[in-house]
Design a protein around this nucleic acid. Structure first.
Lengths: 369, 369
DNA sequence: TTGACTAATGACAGCGCTGTCATTTACGAT
DNA sequence: ATCGTAAATGACAGCGCTGTCATTAGTCAA
């Protein structure tokens, strides 16, 4: 949304300007802070403080103000507050995709964490485009957000500068980094990939391949770790690494597996960059009559709910996406609250190997940072 | 979020109050409409009009204003605009769940439709609780939204009254009704259920059952239609209708199928209220060594991407959730724009039977309203 | 009791924009 | 040239809240 595009403002229709009063909502004579203050016998600014910084108001006044709020059903006007304080209660959330199953759990964590908070979420979908991400960051910062949550650590140079100088806490998620912009919460994609490599090697597979789609930076890091893990035992083979820029899907998993066998028919295992691909690969393997896991191993990534129920249950790597969503909000709240003690600026979580029926030795439980 | 809960305002930390200027964002001396007006040699109000109602400003002034906007990088302040106009550009979106795969596609449609619009989305998750939905409606209306999008047609009495008197367009989605609150877009859940019944009957199944979880009103309507369809041919059997209030999941699909066979071992087909359950049921059927579709038929609902790739591919009902998301925003935009011609207030979409490999006759293509 | 603090409260102005209504300009008809 | 109408523009006030700074009340030690 550029400055110019804002010009096409769809607002301005005259939708029922004559308001109707119901349940005190949207009444023409809205309950304001002044009303509350008057009812409590204090000034407006004291009422304002009572709501925002209760400690700064006397016990007595506070009680009267709170009860007036209750009685009148006062609800603060976010717009007025934002205008006066040059700060909205919006937390911007930049995600590469809305479809992605990872996103759903992440979002759930975020929403669980803002509950009983006055924070509000605004989602921006940059569709895996770094330049779109950059422009969304610009747009969001113009709205004076309370915080910004971004995916990953691979922003453009300009985006990174904006984030570093942003007048609000910024949280990078889903990945770790030694040079975070500000706060960061995630797990090591690279180490997770290495862990998968070890798992497949330990299971005795000797000609492992890879399927990847829509190679965003996180997937790339994962895959880099995987290949590095294979390389240490001399099993990295570029012919077996099949990727596509197209979106990831179950159908794509099947196609890519076919491509893999076309390129290297003797491949005996695959790491799929996510569980959708892995599910597709498993279905395709079934169609081809492969014996999974005996003669062909499959390992997914993310550990979706579905995966453990497939036949055979899918080996995958469980990622803490819900926790990352929750934690990202916690980091922002801590940054916003001067009273919060020493909340760390960095949270490292683990990805956990869930070895199941699509790979041979299904009893090891590894952990990756 | 009640009035009182707003009291715990997490904002108010003093996050870097001293602003840093970068790329004109959040600079202490922000570019305002006045700056634009001055640069263009007009008054502020004219500049404001040029942006919101270009037709009301002369060609000449408009051009100068637009170029000033460009040059200065002006971005309107949403808070100030909201305060002055008593109208935000927020569209509230009330959904029963964030996890649900249906939700993801719906959301994608919504976000695609607000692109290049100044509208903004605010999501409220009411977790299948009608009372929570009601309180979210109240909260949202307090924020003077541009529009409200709700799921289904089964709000509480109080919620319905609020919606009817809301000073903004309201769109009900996912279901049809003869008494919509305002605008409505969806398909008939009931007819979809009937369609499934016909499909199973036509395929020759004679002892069909049902699996349902988390019985929200839409699922209930679907199931009512299904049972009605069975009843017309005397095949409705309450023993075969297995439901649970617990959340729907792939794992739950397997469990429910086990329950079904425990209750009625001779059941020869199931309609699963969504594809997650259906996938779980299919996996469970495989574990039990049932011959699908010959001796046991399975039909899902929603037609997720995964379904067509399963082995065998899952028969399901494709629902237009993406289109509903897009359409809901279109309905709101039309309502907001007095110029928009005669956009209907009601949009009926179709759910389409996708007969595949988990039911016997897999070549009919039906449609339900 | 006084003084030196800190805690509690309030007056005021203004955040940036838009609704209202008054005023000016443009333009065609007389 | 004059008038009447519509189009274009502008002055003004105020939306509801909060930052700033001044003022008053409260507390404790001497």
């Amino acid at each position: 949304m550029t400055a110019l595009s804002l010009v096409n403002n769809p607002i301005g229709g005259d939708w029922r300007r004559g308001w109707i009063v119901y349940d005190n909502i949207m009444a023409r004579n809205r309950i304001t802070l002044d009303d509350v203050a008057r009812a409590a016998g204090v000034s407006a600014i004291t009422a304002s403080r009572a709501l925002r910084q209760p400690a700064k108001v006397s016990e007595r006044a506070r009680a009267r103000i709170f009860s007036a709020v209750q009685k009148l059903g006062y609800v603060p006007d976010a717009a007025a507050s934002a205008l006066a304080s040059t700060r909205t209660s919006v937390v911007g959330l930049l995600v590469p995709s809305l479809t992605n199953a990872v996103f759903a759990d992440f979002l759930r964590g975020v929403y669980d964490a803002i509950e009983d908070t006055s924070l509000t979420i605004q989602i921006g979908n940059f569709r895996y485009s770094p330049s779109k991400e950059e422009s969304l960051i610009r747009t969001f910062l113009h709205q004076r957000p309370s915080g910004l949550i971004v995916a990953g650590v691979d922003q453009t140079e300009a985006a990174r500068r904006m984030l570093m100088e942003a007048p609000c806490p910024v949280v990078q998620t889903m990945e770790l980094s030694d040079q975070p912009v500000d706060r960061i919460i995630g797990f090591s994609q690279y180490a997770s990939g290495e862990m998968v490599a070890r798992h497949l090697i330990d299971a005795g597979y000797r000609r492992p391949g890879l399927l990847g789609a829509r190679m965003d930076p996180r997937a790339q890091a994962r895959i880099a770790g995987y290949r590095s893990g294979l390389r240490t035992v001399g099993l990295d083979d570029a012919r077996r690494m099949i990727t596509t820029p197209q979106p990831s899907s179950v159908g794509m998993g099947g196609q890519l597996l076919a491509d893999l066998f076309a390129a290297a028919p003797d491949t005996d295992a695959v790491f799929c960059a996510n569980d959708d691909l892995a599910a597709g690969a498993l279905f395709e393997a079934q169609r081809r009559g492969l014996r999974v896991p005996e003669s062909f191993g499959i390992c997914g990534f993310n550990d979706l709910e579905m995966s453990r129920h497939m036949v055979p249950p899918l080996t995958s790597v469980a990622t803490p996406r819900y926790e990352i969503g929750r934690g990202a909000i916690d980091l922002i709240r801590a940054a916003l609250d001067p009273l919060s003690g020493e909340m760390p600026k960095r949270i490292e979580l683990d990805a956990v190997m869930s070895a199941r029926g699509t790979t041979r030795n299904n009893k090891n439980e590894r952990t990756a940072r």
